[in-house]
Simulated assay, not measured.
Amino acid sequence: MIRTTPFHARLSELNDQQLYTHWQGTLSPMRYSHAPKHEYFAVRNSAGVFDTSPLYKYAVTGPDAERLLSGALVRDIRTCRPGQAQYTAWCDDRGFVMHDGVAFRHSTDDFLLTAGRPALSWFQELAAGLRVELEDVTDDYGMLAVQGPRSRAVLAELMPEAEKLGYFDHVPAKVADAGVTLSRTGYTGDLGFEITVPADDALAVLDAVLEAGRPHSIRPFGEEALMTLRIEAGLPLVDVEWHDARLAFSDADCVTPKELGFGWMLRGVRDGSRRFVGSDAIRRELVDGTSRWATTGIVVDPEDWDRLYREADLFPPKSEHPWPYESMVLDEDRVEVGYCTSFVYSPVLQRHIGIARVRPDLAAAGTALRLELAINHHNTTVRVTTTSMPFFDPERKKA
Rank of each mutant, 00 (worst) to 15 (best):
S217T: 15
S217N: 15
I218K: 15
R219I: 09
R219W: 14
P220E: 01
E223L: 02
E223F: 00
E223I: 04
L226T: 02
M227H: 15
M227I: 03
T228I: 05
L229K: 08
R230G: 02
R230S: 08
I231P: 06
E232F: 05
A233D: 01
G234T: 04
G234L: 07
L235T: 11
P236C: 11
P236V: 00
L237D: 09
L237V: 12
V238S: 15
E241N: 15
E241Y: 04
H243K: 12
H243Q: 14
D244N: 11
A245R: 13
R246I: 07
L247C: 06
L247Q: 08
A248V: 04
A248L: 00
F249L: 15
F249Y: 13
C254N: 11
C254G: 05
K258T: 11
K258D: 13
K258A: 14
K258M: 14
K258S: 12
E259V: 04
E259C: 06
E259A: 03
G261Y: 00
F262E: 07
G263I: 11
G263L: 10
R267E: 15
R267A: 14
V269R: 02
R270I: 08
D271S: 10
D271E: 01
G272H: 02
S273I: 10
R274E: 05
R274C: 08
F276M: 03
F276N: 03
S279W: 00
A281G: 05
I282W: 08
R284N: 06
R284W: 00
E285Y: 08
L286G: 01
L286M: 15
L286Y: 08
V287L: 11
V287F: 09
G289R: 06
G289P: 08
T290N: 03
W293D: 00
W293H: 01
A294T: 06
T295K: 10
T295V: 01
T296N: 02
T296P: 04
G297D: 12
V299A: 11
V300Y: 13
V300I: 13
V300T: 12
D301C: 13
P302T: 13
P302R: 08
E303S: 13
E303L: 14
E303A: 14
D304N: 11
D304Y: 07
D304V: 06
